[in-house]
Nucleic acid binder design. Sequence first.
DNA 1: AACTTGACGAGGG
DNA 2: CCCCTCGCCAAGT
Length: 121
Amino acid sequence: MNIVNDRTYRECVYEIVRQIPVGKVMTYGQLAIVLGEGYTARTVGYVMHGSDEDVPWQRVINSQGKCSTGRLTIPLNLQQELLEAEGVVFNSSGKCDLAKFQWFPDGFEPKEDEQVSLFQQ
DNA sequence: AACTTGACGAGGG
DNA sequence: CCCCTCGCCAAGT
């Protein structure tokens, strides 16, 4: 089945991102896994760069727990500042603890033993 | 149709 | 911790 049929692939990404609670984050790769077929971290990133809509884009970060907004038109610190304002804590290297702040959509919570292996590194 | 570019990620050195 | 390589896939030239 192709999720991209009814709604565009962009809409599917936004739909999930809009569900991320305040103070929580998801990674590009995790979104790709949740979206399934055809999606990769790369394409999710591509989709997110055009999300000037009502999506909390700041809650999507890379798998290392950092904000990778390296070559954007927006200030480098903006994303981290927005997240910190929501309660996400970053260390001196600009990294946050995914084990603490990463959010999982319904049905995608990691099981007890395989906790960290799947969605995080 | 071929080639290049990314708001990526895992693996290796 | 940093850097590089490769795989990935949509978009723009």
